[in-house]
Amino acid sequence: MASSSSKDGRLCSSTLPAERNNRHAKGKKASSDYSKTSTVLAHLLPNGLGFLGFTLLPLLASLVLSFFSWPVLGQHKFIGLDNYIRLFTKDPVFFSVFLNTFYFVVGYVPLNLIFAVGIAVWLNSNIRGGKIFRLIFFLPVFTPMVANALVWRLLLTPHGVLDYVLALFHVPSPNWLGSEHLAMPAMILMSTWQGFGYNMLVFSAGLRSIPPPLYEAAAIDGAKPWTRFWKITLPMLTPSIFFGTVMTFITSFQVFVQPYVLTAGGPGVSTTTVVYYLYNNGF
């Protein structure tokens, strides 16, 4: 968000003075420069009302409901922070659900970013057919996740393809989705396959805007490729990486399809994430 908001700041500050010169050269007070209220409302309301009704209202309701005891039948009662306290201390499952989600995020976000940066940089070198490769890597981002997850369930199943490949290398193959210890790593792996392409595109756009003379100068000074990566590429990509990290964090806390399709939250509750838990308990 930081990179985009700084961009906004730049755009606004560069357009506003020009507007003032154009339209308000008479030096009137700011408030009289406003457009007609009815015009403003006519443009803002279609989107704004929908946003109020379908996002802001539920958001506030969520907050308010959380301070009440709200059974389907019977009295609603204000109970302060009791729901929160009970969730973390009395609910036998929620704490593990919280930890599982955290585990997923901590595993998935770095893996996603490393892949995204690595492959974006790799594709930016002298690879032929870069466009086709880029397409292949971001295709799973845009295909329905349910379908993606279903085929992975097939790949990971005992006596499936992964078993076979591991057997070729004489590696004993565990039951990935049936093991409390391996189900989550398998989910992280599948999610990385599916999701890193978006960040890769973001970083590719970032890479293209690094001025080539920087690299040429570094090469003349005798900087090795590895040094150039650490001293030029990575620092210049930092705004994109920051943005990618924030967005990936937000979306990965919402992980739902993968546990739903791959493991049904199991074995036990080992892959039950917050949204999956919410779905199971709320609906």
Partner: peptide, 30 residues
């Protein structure tokens, strides 16, 4: 258009992109 606190309103609106789905989904269903 020009209106009261346009830039601030826009940034707040942009910030709502960060609201995760799981927070609103139960009340929305209700």
């Amino acid at each position: 258009l020009h209106f009261w606190r346009r830039e601030q309103l826009f940034l707040i609106y942009l910030g709502t992109l960060m609201i995760p789905q799981e927070v609103t989904v139960v009340p929305l269903f209700l």
